[in-house]
């Protein structure tokens, strides 16, 4: 049962990841990426990381990908006529990625790593993760809240419309005219 689930989720993850980079329509790419995230969440469940599985679905599939989808709809990008790179550049990219995969595969093929035991442990539950997070890693946790605040402010400042700059420019022109 465990093996069947593992192989099913693996094939689903890799197939949907290939769909992300090969589909012409950007909206299809987003939907494929959401399917990939669901497969990765299934892997987290198999690895006894229940909290991370739920957070992965809520944050990635729920929030981030919806943001991508909104931006894409906002820009009317759901068209199939997307400019593609030249065949040579695509081939070069594919060879570069494949060679990287082969190099790491060859380096780690003979690594002596232990076999994952099948019995479940409870380190991935919210109780244990919360204990570690709020005792050992409480300072990074607080710093990440500051990071979030600055990211929110930065996103709002960057993406707002630029009436302010035009009025400032007009003002400078007016003052120069007065002089």
């Amino acid at each position: 049962m465990y093996e069947v689930l593992f192989w099913f989720l693996t094939i689903m993850a890799i197939g949907c990841a290939l769909g992300v980079i090969l589909s012409r329509n950007p909206v299809n790419s987003v939907l494929f990426l959401i399917a990939t995230f669901f497969a990765i969440s299934g892997h987290y469940l198999l690895l006894n990381a229940q909290f991370l599985a739920v957070v992965n679905i809520i944050v990635y599939a729920g929030a981030i990908m919806v943001l991508f989808l909104f931006v894409m709809m906002l820009m009317n990008l759901n068209a199939d006529v997307e400019p593609q790179k030249s065949r040579l550049a695509q081939l070069a990219g594919m060879i570069a990625g494949g060679v990287l995969f082969l190099v790491i595969l060859a380096a780690l093929r003979t690594a002596s790593l232990s076999v994952l035991d099948k019995q479940s442990n409870d380190i991935g539950l919210i109780k244990n993760l919360g204990k570690v997070l709020f005792t050992q890693y409480v300072l990074p946790f607080e710093i990440s809240s500051v990071l979030f605040l600055s990211a929110i402010i930065g996103a709002v400042v960057i993406s707002r419309k630029e009436e302010v700059h035009s009025t400032v420019a007009d003002g400078s022109v007016n003052t120069s005219d007065i002089k």
């Binding site: 993850a13 890799i14 990841a17 290939l18 992300v20 980079i21 950007p26 790419s29 990939t36 991508f68 931006v71 894409m72 990008l77 997307e82 400019p83 593609q84 790179k85 550049a89 695509q90 070069a92 990219g93 594919m94 570069a96 990625g97 494949g98 990287l100 995969f101």
Partner: peptide, 17 residues
């Protein structure tokens, strides 16, 4: 998955992809 991500980064022209 990482290699597929790198391939996509090198192959596509759409910034969102």
């Amino acid at each position: 998955l990482f290699s597929i991500g790198i391939m996509g980064t090198l192959m596509r022209r759409n910034a969102i992809i």
